[in-house]
Design a protein around this nucleic acid. Structure first.
Length: 197
DNA sequence: CGGCCGATCCACT
DNA sequence: GTGGATCGGCCGA
C-alpha cells in the first residue's frame, strides 16, 4: 500500500504521472477487484478552471477535495456515471487526480459480471465511468481513506515492461478556456499483446 | 424552486 | 460523428 506521504506531495501533476503503472484495488460487495492505472488527469487546485474547486469554490460536493491527500473524491456526472478521483496535497488545497483507465488484473470475472463487458488482461478499460462500474465504486465511497481496506493503491512490479507514458490535454473540459490545453493528462502506452481466444 | 448542464457512454449511421 | 439517456449539483431569482 502506498505510503501516506506520496499523496501529500505538493505537485498534483507529478502525482498524476507517478500513479501510472501502479495498481488500484477495491474491495466492494465482498469482492476484490483491481487493475493497473493506465490513464490519469490532474486537477490543479483553485487556479485550474477545469476543477470543481476553481476560484476556491466550496460546496458540499467539492468539500471532499479540500481534505487531506490520500482520500477519494467520488462524484456523480451526466446522470449515470460515477468518477473516481484521488485527493492530493495537504488539507485546504483542493488538488485531485481523476482515474480514467486501468488494465484489469484482479477479479476480472467479478468485473465482467458487474458490467457485462468481456475483459482481457491485455486490453485496458478506458473511461472514468467504466472504471467505477468495474470496481463497484459509487458515491458511498466518497471521501474514504486510501489507506483503509475498501479502496487503495499498491506499487506494482512492471517486470520487464518498459511503459512509455504519453502526455496530452485533458478530455471533456472545453469550458475551462485556456486551462483546457494544459498537459495534465497521462496515458500509459499499453504493450500490445495478442488477445487470447 | 426552476432551469441549465456536466471531468460520459453507447448505439446507431 | 452524432444524439439520446438521465439526474444531482449549482446558481440565480
Amino acid at each position: 500500500m502506498i505510503r501516506k506521504e506520496f499523496y501529500l506531495q505538493p505537485d498534483v501533476v507529478q502525482i498524476a504521472r507517478a500513479l501510472i503503472g501502479k495498481c488500484l484495488l477495491a474491495f466492494t460487495d465482498g469482492k476484490l477487484t483491481g487493475g493497473i492505472i493506465t490513464e490519469t488527469e490532474a486537477y490543479n487546485g483553485v487556479t485550474d478552471r477545469a476543477s470543481h474547486a476553481y476560484n476556491g469554490r466550496r460546496t458540499q460536493r467539492t468539500e471532499t477535495m479540500y481534505g487531506t491527500g490520500g482520500i477519494t473524491y467520488v462524484y456523480f456526472c451526466y446522470g449515470m456515471h460515477h468518477m473516481l478521483n484521488i485527493v492530493t496535497n495537504v488539507a485546504g488545497i483542493p488538488d485531485a487526480v481523476l482515474v480514467r483507465g486501468i488494465l484489469p488484473r484482479i477479479g476480472l470475472k467479478t468485473m465482467e459480471n458487474r458490467t457485462g463487458y468481456r475483459l482481457s488482461s491485455t486490453v485496458q478499460v478506458s473511461g472514468p465511468g467504466r472504471i467505477t462500474k468495474c470496481l463497484g465504486i459509487g458515491k458511498q465511497h466518497n471521501g474514504i481513506s486510501l489507506r483503509g481496506d475498501r479502496i487503495w493503491i499498491e506499487d506494482w512490479d512492471a517486470g520487464n515492461d518498459i511503459w512509455e507514458i504519453m502526455t496530452t490535454e485533458r478530455i471533456g473540459i472545453d469550458y475551462a478556456e485556456e486551462d483546457a490545453s494544459l498537459p495534465y493528462r497521462f496515458v500509459m502506452k499499453v504493450p500490445q499483446t495478442k488477445n487470447p481466444g
